[in-house]
Nucleic acid binder design. Structure first.
Lengths: 201, 201
DNA sequence: AACCATCCGTACGCCACCGTACGGAGCCCG
DNA sequence: CGGGCTCCGTACGGTGGCGTACGGATGGTT
């Protein structure tokens, strides 16, 4: 499906296929020979474009990192104000967890979180997402520490939801239930503490 | 360290070691020959006690499931009332995410969530934990649907936190920050909607 | 047409792991 | 002391993946 017109493969073709494999089976699925078969080629091609399997893995991770940080942010930034952005963000990531292949990548990466190539990517992505969330909460008027905490709750809830939807889809909310759940989460996150106004700290 | 007095290995020895490996490197670390080396034995011993590697993996998963559901519940049930239990539970799982080896197992399992041996275990564990949370919220006076939603938020927040602490420990809260975060999460979870009492929908 | 760079297939050696065959040590029981 | 059972080591074949060597095809350039 990918080598119709082109008669010779590029490094990008390999990287793209590697990313697909990464989403399907984690890092261990990024294997030269299976990918070669999938591309209708052989290792001879691969080792022309790359020096090692690790280099391919790095390329795939790089791709994922770029897509993951561009795509979502771009979509969300279309909304006018911080509140709408937060809503859009939450609805997007909570709703699409079953479909979005990016989540599959992320979850598949969990097993190799310690891998020297994986760890830095994971950290950069998480850091960026948390930072973005934090700006949203700050712009909603929350002081820094509070924005930090709410970002963390929002982000962990997202991560957990993605994990749930991926590992045990039967237990993740869908349809009506999901809608009600997402609404409640959003309400909770932007809620200005109705009862104890002064921090107990 | 494990075959000091005993001179012959048991199936349980193998299963225990397999569980350790599972925590360290996921399912792919449950490999016969490396484990044999670790035990100071050879495959000859293994294939006496087990029929295949899958059987060992199943035994390790079974162990994890049992420990994971017994240990935590038992600890938490020591508390007197639902609120204290919820507090204890959250503090326990949010705080110890860096240490608890059970989390390492769980996160390592994410990559192979689709594995026929892994999937059922993951589902049973999640189901049980969500059910337990739900009873706590119900006993706190929340109606069923609401208890369901709060359980979900609590559980996904836990999962996400564990994931964060495991994959990017630098970004997970610690010490003071963790304490404040945990307090806020708990407050949020048991909060009875201060501002909009009627659903805005 | 000859040439050179690009791109890739084939074939090979290597390693890690699975599973099997088989023999032998150790021990209990007579 | 001899047989039999339990437990395990050794040795082997098979598979799947990595990386290398090398030759050949293809296409542009002069």
């Amino acid at each position: 499906m990918s080598r119709a017109g082109r008669r010779t493969l590029t490094a990008d073709d390999w990287a793209a296929t590697a990313l697909t494999a990464l989403a399907e089976g984690g890092t261990r699925a990024v294997a030269v020979e299976p990918l070669a078969a999938r591309l209708g080629a052989t290792k001879g091609s691969f080792y022309w474009h790359f020096r090692s399997r690790d280099e391919l893995l790095a390329a795939a991770l790089d791709r994922w990192e770029r897509v993951e940080t561009e795509e979502v942010i771009r979509t969300v930034e279309a909304e006018p104000d911080p509140l709408a952005r937060l809503r859009a963000l939450l609805l997007l990531v909570l709703g699409a967890t079953t479909e979005r292949s990016g989540n599959a990548v992320e979850l598949g990466l969990q097993g190799d979180a310690g891998h020297p190539l994986v760890a830095p990517v994971l950290e950069r992505v998480s850091r960026r997402r948390l930072a973005y969330l934090s700006t949203l909460f700050t712009r909603l008027g929350f002081p820094a520490a509070e924005a930090e905490r709410r970002s963390l709750l929002a982000y962990t809830a997202y991560l957990g939801h993605a994990q749930l939807a991926h590992a045990t889809p039967a237990l993740a909310p869908r349809g009506e239930t999901l809608q009600a759940y997402a609404d409640e989460v959003i309400r909770t996150l932007v809620d200005r503490g109705g009862e104890d106004d002064g921090p107990a700290e």
